[in-house]
Amino acid sequence: MDSLLLLLGFICMIIGILGSFLPVLPGISLSWLGLLLLYLTKTVSMNYWVLGITLTITIIISILNYIIPAKGTKRFGGSSYGIWGTNIGLVVGIFAPIPFGFIIGPFVGAFIGELLYDYKDHNRALKAATGSFIGFLASSFINFMLCIIFFGLFLTVVWQNRVGLF
């Protein structure tokens, strides 16, 4: 059973790292799930402090993932139309059959949203779309770094406890 939990935890860690860039996957949440699965093995003693602190960080970052791109749009002069465009563009970009749609989508969505708000001011729309893009990149970078930290914690605990697949 420990081998299965360890393998599932490792898979969650890898998918979590990939999910830090792909918005369709909850990267940080999957990485935390990998930590939880590791601590559920019999070889590793349960450490509620580590799990509690990492869970708190996971919840805070998961909430910030929705706030940061919108704040980026607003910080660069965007309106609520641009914020809605960012969110809609993110969803459309995930499912669009174009390469890197999840990156292009929020930018185009914010741009279109701002043009709907004021179709004459193209510079403002471009500036708000740039803010959306920078916010998305910042959010993805924070997710990636935390997933890497969680993966490092996972590997450290595995190494210290000599947890093995066999």
Rank of each mutant, 00 (worst) to 15 (best):
K74Q: 02
I60D: 07
P69E: 03
I57H: 04
I67W: 06
V50C: 10
R75M: 14
I61P: 03
K74L: 04
I61A: 01
A70L: 03
N47Q: 14
L51Q: 11
R75Q: 10
R75F: 06
I60K: 06
T73H: 07
S80W: 13
I59S: 05
G78C: 12
Y66P: 04
I60Q: 02
T56Q: 11
V44E: 14
T58D: 05
I53Q: 05
I67Q: 06
F76M: 13
I60W: 02
I57K: 02
S45Y: 09
P69D: 01
G72I: 03
T54H: 03
I59K: 05
N65D: 15
G52N: 04
G52Q: 11
A70W: 02
I61L: 01
I59G: 08
Y66F: 05
A70T: 00
I68E: 04
L55I: 12
S62I: 10
N47I: 09
L64Y: 01
G52Y: 02
Y48P: 11
N65L: 12
L55S: 13
Y66H: 07
L55M: 07
K74N: 01
T58F: 02
G78N: 01
I59Y: 00
L51G: 12
Y48E: 15
T56C: 14
L55Q: 06
P69H: 04
N65I: 13
A70P: 00
G77N: 05
I63T: 10
T73F: 02
T58H: 01
L64D: 08
L51P: 13
L51E: 12
S80E: 15
I68F: 00
G72T: 03
T58L: 02
R75D: 11
I57W: 06
P69G: 01
F76E: 13
I53Y: 02
I61G: 00
T56W: 03
L51W: 01
P69R: 01
V50P: 10
T56F: 13
I68V: 10
G72V: 00
T73S: 14
I67G: 04
I61D: 04
L64I: 07
V50R: 01
V44I: 14
I57F: 04
I63A: 12
G72H: 04
I53N: 05
I61E: 08
S80L: 14
L55Y: 07
W49I: 15
L55F: 08
S62L: 09
T56V: 15
G52E: 09
